[in-house]
Design a protein around this nucleic acid. Structure first.
Lengths: 194, 194
DNA sequence: GTCTATAGGTGGATAGAC
DNA sequence: GTCTATCCACCTATAGAC
């Protein structure tokens, strides 16, 4: 019925994806849809409502990538797949990744609460899998939280170095580097003999 | 002689530090200095010249932190101190760190060449120290570049997770977590018996 | 439901008086 | 060297005609 509303959302999404949050303006959306700016206000209360929609879509996509990771057989495999999901998301939705996970918190609480909830849940899952890995002897005895932070930092660090262009690699080259680096890190968490 | 020019630079610096790059405008600088906006153009060609000054100052500060790290006795200690310097810089110049190291590269080459040069030099030093660590038996046999990427990712990942508020820690708490995590990672790079 | 017109705000930068 | 006045571009959002 209300196809204009959807076309507005799609245009907003496209502007966000291609030019970042600063690239989204009511005028540009309107121009892309083929109406004037005030017409948008018949369908959306204000700009914030449009941006909220974009954020929700992004979080849903991330969620849909992460969920299957937790179905894997072993805790180590679940951990690995979570990292893969995080990587896939960063490569498929780069602008959203940058905006959601690379934007400083700034004094005024700019980070959305929705996002924060998702974030804590991911971390909680990671700690859980690490705990299992320690108990079943896949990893050596350590503090699960500390190990989870280490795993998360490495994965997140790799991806942000890549996203800021500091590794000088293309998508495919980076995927290989990511794979090798994460596997080696996980291997080094095995119990030691000395 | 030209103290107004310095006061303009100082005001620009302060606005940048407190409100980020978006918070710097000719009008606000002028207001803070106590003149009108056009007066600034007698001292600076345009806004870009002002921002360049801020970037140069920041890179100089980072450089002054990193240089002493390379004077340490062992390659492992040099590596550790480089990480510490990076952390100190992120905590002391948070806005600059965010802008320089957490901003996505975007299609149009927005990352300054100066910055890129510094970056590559840091990475080159890291690879060098890692190579020494492998040769003198501090680390097990591995590809130096890969290990350097791992070390750098962990350090960078920890700091960016902290800077985006996702670890939920204050400066001092984070310093402890950082210390423990990095030390443990370096320890796990020792040669293995199995 | 969309339009025009407009209010009221941000910003960078220049011309010409003083 | 600084001022006022101004131009231009951009933005969000509303009022009221159609």
């Amino acid at each position: 019925m209300n196809e204009l509303k959807e076309r507005i959302a799609a245009a907003a999404h496209e502007l966000f994806t291609e030019h970042g949050p600063e690239g989204v303006s009511m005028r540009k959306i309107a121009q892309q849809v083929g109406v004037t700016a005030p017409a948008i206000y018949r369908h959306y209360k204000d700009k914030g409502e449009l941006l909220d929609g974009i954020i929700n879509d992004g979080l849903e996509k991330l969620q849909s990538r992460l969920a299957p990771a937790l179905e894997a057989a072993t805790p180590l495999e679940r951990l690995r797949r979570m990292g893969d999901a995080y990587l896939d998301f960063a490569i498929e939705q780069p602008t959203f990744f940058d905006y959601a996970f690379m934007t400083p918190k700034r004094s005024s609480g700019s980070i959305s609460e929705e996002l924060q909830r998702h974030d804590r849940r991911i971390f909680r899952h990671a700690i859980e899998q690490v705990t299992h890995c320690i108990h079943d002897g896949t990893f050596g005895p350590s503090d699960p939280i500390e190990v989870a932070i280490r795993v998360w930092s490495t994965v997140h660090g790799l991806i942000t170095l890549f996203r800021t262009g500091r590794l000088g690699l293309g998508d495919d080259q980076f995927r290989e580097t990511y794979r090798r680096t994460v596997d080696q890190m996980l291997a080094d968490l095995r119990p030691r003999n000395d």
